[in-house]
């Protein structure tokens, strides 16, 4: 099996103050194969977001290792992590998190610009992605002129446009109605198949969870189920 991501013995403990210690993740071991469409599910506080943040290099594990495409992320400098996020990981957040002062097109092109791509490349790629996602008519609009579903599509387009190896989506449908959520998931599934990009998303929603090819369930920071759907 060709694994894109290996998570080894990850533990994460938060210490909000001297007396209190919160264990968010306990001995998490996971292998995610290249091209996977993976869901992380579990009740609130089970550690889904923490695990996604650690995988994405947004947070440090207390112990353990994260290996992305053969490269150990644990212990890397902030600059190196930032370059890995820019070149290899796309993010989709629950609250869309577009840059408010940039248009949809500029948001989509933002990471590509960070990668140093030319304007022509950016134009071609953003057109290709937005046509696939059906948002090519929204390119000139600012985030505050778009609906929640439209903003989330732009966020997905931003994540995909930079051709990452991995997309991490933290509850991408949580703020959307069921119809929009289903449509977004169909779209992400299509991107997974067409572009071959590995997608890991977290969700509570059984309809969304049902679309995944690989399901991981967390509870109290531990993996209690890890199943691949054939």
């Amino acid at each position: 099996m060709d694994n894109l991501l290996e998570i080894k013995q990850i533990n994460k403990t938060f210490q909000p103050n001297k007396e209190v210690e919160v264990v968010a993740l306990r001995d998490v071991n996971l292998d995610i194969e290249r091209g996977g469409f993976v869901v992380l599910s579990g009740p609130s506080g089970s550690g889904k977001t923490t695990l996604l943040n650690i995988i994405g290099g947004l947070d440090d594990a207390t112990s353990g290792e994260v290996i992305l495409d053969g490269q150990l992320l644990t212990g890397l400098s902030e600059v190196a992590l930032s370059e890995i996020r820019r070149d290899h990981i796309g993010f989709v957040f629950q609250a869309y998190n577009l840059i408010p002062v940039l248009t949809a097109k500029e948001n989509i092109e933002y990471v590509m610009k960070l990668q140093g791509r030319s304007q022509q490349e950016c134009d071609e790629r953003s057109l290709e992605v937005t046509q696939k996602l059906g948002i090519d008519t929204l390119l000139g609009k600012l985030p505050n002129q778009l609906s929640g579903g439209q903003q989330q599509r732009v966020a997905v387009a931003r994540a995909v446009a930079a051709t990452p190896k991995l997309i991490l989506a933290d509850e991408p449908t949580a703020n959307l109605d069921s119809k929009t959520a289903a449509s977004l998931m169909d779209m992400m599934q299509r991107l997974n198949e067409d572009e071959g990009v590995t997608i890991i998303f977290s969700s509570h929603d059984p309809l969304v969870i049902g679309k995944a090819k690989h399901s991981i369930v967390l509870k109290d920071g531990k993996v209690i189920a890890n199943e691949r759907v054939c």
Binding site: G56, L58, S82, R85, R86, F93, N97, L114, A159
Partner: peptide, 16 residues
């Protein structure tokens, strides 16, 4: 802070 957080998360360096 949030806006800068998003930018850092998606690969912007602090220097940028």
């Amino acid at each position: 802070l949030r806006e800068f957080g998003i930018m850092l998360a998606i690969g912007t360096r602090f220097s940028q």
